[in-house]
């Protein structure tokens, strides 16, 4: 394999932020909240850049769907080593309703348009926690999928993927072109250095609309409301191990 890799990057609320539900229960508060690249997407970018550094692929294209601000996320991917970016602009109501089905249609269309051999995505976004986009992109393209990857090895025109599954690990071999989704253990993403951040400013980000790709954003999912999860009642501190074991025995837990 020596072609082009597309990497999807999503802008999400930073993983360390304690989110707040809006008082009107329509969604969570995003205005004025720190955003960054979804951690699993960082891992996807790192893997693509590594493949390029090993000269196994030619070009890495970072893609993000959303409003103007997602260009910052693409810029981060460029600073990590992606060659160019594509911003698929989605705003307002369309952005609120943008889900994995719509995003996977966009990725599938871009994969064909760009003649990609590989699409690497994170295994899930930490905001919607869906864990769907990679699988759906693979389905729409009729490509094989290597999800929850903790190790990726290119073997000619095939890819060996070690996957994290419930009982341990499994290894599969898939044909290319393919879609791979990154698990946490795939690699440790690099930090973009200042010179690379400066260089990234010169790299190109193409702008397009879903309609340019022939993708219809209609959603048949409706978020009715968003609530705070039930709060746990404050517990008690115990002084000694015997006290703890005694309490658990009384409560019938052990």
């Amino acid at each position: 394999m020596s072609g082009r890799v597309l990497v999807g990057v999503k802008r999400v609320i930073d993983y360390a932020v304690k989110i707040r539900v809006k008082p009107d229960n329509t969604s969570v508060v995003t205005d004025g909240v720190k955003h960054s690249m979804n951690p699993f997407c960082e891992i996807a970018v790192e893997e693509a850049v590594k493949l390029k550094e090993k000269k196994l692929i030619k070009e890495v294209v970072a893609i993000s769907c959303g409003p103007q601000q997602v260009q910052e996320t693409i810029r981060t991917a460029l600073a990590m080593g992606a060659d160019r970016g594509i911003h698929v602009e989605v705003n307002g109501k369309d952005y609120e309703n943008l889900g994995p089905l719509q995003v996977s249609k966009i990725f599938a269309a871009l994969a064909k348009k760009e003649d990609a051999q590989l699409v690497i995505l994170g295994k899930q976004a930490i905001d919607d926690d869906c864990n769907q986009t990679g699988q759906m992109t693979a389905a729409l393209l009729d490509w094989p999928q290597g999800t929850f990857a903790s190790e990726v090895t290119l073997e000619g025109d095939k890819i060996k993927v070690v996957r994290e599954i419930d009982g341990g690990l499994e290894t599969i071999r898939i044909n290319t072109p393919a879609v791979v989704t990154a698990d946490l253990r795939l690699n440790t993403p690099r930090y973009a250095t200042l010179p690379n951040i400066m260089k990234a400013k010169k790299k190109k980000i193409a702008n397009m609309k879903p309609a340019d790709l022939g993708v219809d954003l209609t959603s048949r999912l409706e978020q009715l409301r968003v609530d705070e999860p039930p709060q746990r009642q404050a517990g008690m501190k115990v002084e000694t191990v015997d006290d703890l074991v005694g309490k658990l025995k009384d409560a019938g837990r052990i």
Binding site: N131, A138, A139, T147
Partner: peptide, 23 residues
């Protein structure tokens, strides 16, 4: 919603052109 279910169902949903719901 095991590793098996998460791997398979979104693929099925995309083929049916429907949005799946996770977990």
């Amino acid at each position: 919603a095991s590793a098996f279910g998460k791997n398979l169902l979104p693929r099925v949903a995309a083929k049916l052109d429907v949005a799946p719901i996770s977990d």
